[in-house]
């Protein structure tokens, strides 16, 4: 469970997040949407402390991660993250990318890590690419490897930062399919996305951020059919 309590984040004078509060339940899939510059990504990055909130608290499974005493690395072991631009390690093969963190961070034996890695790579449909280097892969394939890499740490929570925004249109589906399978398996997921249809279909709840504020939240059916706030109405009008 992720409990976000009054979280704000400023970069200097610039307030990017303003008093965000929400609770994400175990197994819930939450889509975070909103115009660009609304603070969606910053919100997501606060959840694994890639950004340190300026104020407020975030509690993940009973651990207050915004406390100064907390070991960031320990927290992050439990939270997978997938980036817009993949950020695969270019000097490692697909299998090495996936098994690096289990080996280094969890001190897993190579044979064991390879086994887990291979099964995850199979799960995202890339068994034939195990020994390939990332630059030999298409965008969709890279993103699927990135998902497998995050899953290899066996996290409780997965964060997705616009995972399909850098992809060619014909590759979006293969990534969304993998994410949908993951959602069906009961993974807790927070997804910053512009794929409204995907949000509609897969998310249990939608958070609408605008100008650093959590303006509206609700079930996707009701949110997309009948947004309550003017700002959400305006936003949806523009994109749908």
């Amino acid at each position: 469970m992720i409990k976000v309590d009054n979280v704000s984040k400023s970069f200097g004078e610039n307030a990017v997040l303003k008093n965000i509060s929400t609770t994400i339940k175990q197994g819930e899939v939450v889509a975070v949407i909103g115009p660009s510059g609304s603070g969606k990504s910053t919100f997501l990055r606060c959840l694994n402390l890639l950004e340190q909130p300026t104020a407020g608290d975030i509690c993940i499974n009973e651990t207050m991660i915004t406390s100064l005493k907390v070991n960031k690395l320990e927290i992050r072991k439990n939270i997978g993250m997938v980036f817009q631009h993949f950020h695969l390690f270019p000097h490692m093969t697909v299998l090495e990318n996936v098994t690096y963190a289990p080996k280094k961070v969890k001190n897993m034996k190579k044979t064991e890590a390879d086994e887990i890695g291979k099964s995850l790579i199979a799960k995202v449909g890339l068994t034939d690419k195990e020994t390939a280097y990332p630059n030999r892969l298409s965008g969709g394939q890279k993103q699927r490897v990135a998902i497998a890499r995050a899953l290899a740490m066996e996290p409780d929570i997965m964060l997705f930062d616009e995972p399909t925004s850098a992809l060619d249109p014909e590759m979006v589906k293969e990534v969304l399919d993998v994410m949908k399978d993951l959602a069906d398996s009961g993974m807790t997921m927070v997804i910053v996305t512009h794929e409204m249809n995907f949000a509609k279909e897969v998310a249990d709840r939608v958070l609408f951020l605008d100008n650093g504020m959590l303006v509206e939240e609700g079930k996707p059916e009701s949110f997309f059919a009948k947004p309550q706030t003017v700002r959400a109405q305006n936003f949806l009008e523009k994109i749908l």
Partner: peptide, 23 residues
């Protein structure tokens, strides 16, 4: 080196020294 590499390593919980040496 792309800053995303550091972030990817951090997000995986990789300690600083390993991140520098291996990535």
């Amino acid at each position: 080196v792309d800053k995303g590499q550091t972030e990817a390593a951090q997000a995986l919980g990789v300690p600083y020294k390993s991140m520098m040496v291996n990535i």
